[in-house]
């Protein structure tokens, strides 16, 4: 029978002593850190790899600038005059935060290696503030927030009520289910979906599909280079709608009670019309079609131009 190793009985005691000391000092360390981060409004730096929490009192119309390279950003507008940021910062990266009553600027700085790890921030901002959020691969989710949202290959999802919204992504998708008077959205290869309630919209892509189903539209400019544009919404009375596409399809799915004047032209494509019984005229002997017609009285003014993309009309 072997003897027990007595040294193993001593080590736990030492660990307990160290733990007690650390626990005793921990609140004091956290408190001094929190005091250092708050109050001055000066930019501060935070070692990475841990949870962060920052608060700043700002004016109701403050500007809030955020930069997060990778991970996710969730923006929630609330009825308080303060900005609160919580979340986690990726290992090896630093969190910076600064601001005053007029605005706040914060974000995550990548490591020197160039590759960014995922950081996840939840940001509360005053409902009437204007945010400006820039990401590389991070996803952006925002509810009731107004402002500019940019990501390269992350996805952007916006919802709620906004004063105005501008969103840009390159390969990421943009999904907007917002109630706002004005929207501008651009994607490259990502899908652009516009729902909710919008009065004035300008949405386009390079190769990604553009899907519009927003209610309340009275001004619309929609287009793509090769992506399909599908408009399935009501045309506001007196509205002006402009669609252009190079080689993608432009499909108008219109309610049966639609009124307006329509001018459709495709230089080398065809018009596939299931709404009227009109026959499109040919532009030349072998290619291109045009169709101009009116539905009902008054209504919207709609122009569709494509180079070789099909123009489809559906109820």
């Amino acid at each position: 029978m072997s003897k027990p190793n007595l040294r193993n009985y001593g080590e736990p005691r030492m660990s307990v002593v160290i733990s007690v000391i650390m626990l005793a000092f921990c609140p004091w360390m956290l408190a001094t850190d929190a005091l250092a981060q708050q109050g001055t409004g000066q930019p501060t730096r935070q070692s990475s790899g841990q949870r962060i929490e920052r608060r700043l009192a700002v004016g109701a119309n403050a500007s809030v600038k955020v930069f997060v390279p990778s991970g996710s950003v969730s923006v929630v507008a609330w009825d308080r005059d303060s900005v609160v940021v919580t979340g986690t910062v990726a290992d090896g990266e630093t969190f910076f935060f600064g601001g005053n009553r007029r605005g706040a600027k914060f974000g995550v700085e990548g490591s020197s290696s160039g590759e960014s790890g995922p950081s996840h921030l939840v940001i509360h901002v005053p409902a009437t503030s204007l945010v400006s959020i820039k990401c590389a691969s991070a996803d952006i989710n925002a509810n009731n927030a107004s402002g500019w949202f940019y990501t390269v290959d992350g996805n952007i999802r916006l919802s709620g009520h906004s004063r105005e919204v501008e969103a840009e992504a390159m390969s990421g998708d943009i999904t907007m289910m917002v109630s706002t008077p004005w929207v501008r959205a651009r994607t490259g290869s990502g899908t652009l979906t516009l729902g909710g309630h919008v009065i004035d919209a300008d949405a386009s892509s390079i190769t990604g599909p553009v899907l519009i189903s927003a209610a309340g539209l009275t001004r619309g400019k929609f287009g793509s280079v090769t992506g399909n544009v599908v408009f399935a919404a009501a045309l506001g009375d007196g509205g002006i709608f402009d669609f252009d596409n190079h080689s993608g399809v432009v499909e108008l799915r219109l309610p049966s009670a639609t009124a307006g004047s329509f001018q459709l032209t495709t230089v080398e494509g065809t018009i596939d019309d299931n709404i009227t019984s009109l026959k499109p005229a040919s532009l030349s002997a072998d290619r291109g079609q045009t169709l101009a017609f009116r539905l009902g009285s008054g209504g919207a003014h709609v122009t569709v131009r494509t180079f070789k993309g099909t123009i489809r009309l559906r109820h």
Binding site: R184, G220, K221, F241, D242, S261, A292, H301, T303
Partner: peptide, 10 residues
């Protein structure tokens, strides 16, 4: 950035 819709349809 605002929408400027060309009404030059014809």
């Amino acid at each position: 950035g605002r929408t400027v819709v060309s009404a030059a349809a014809n």
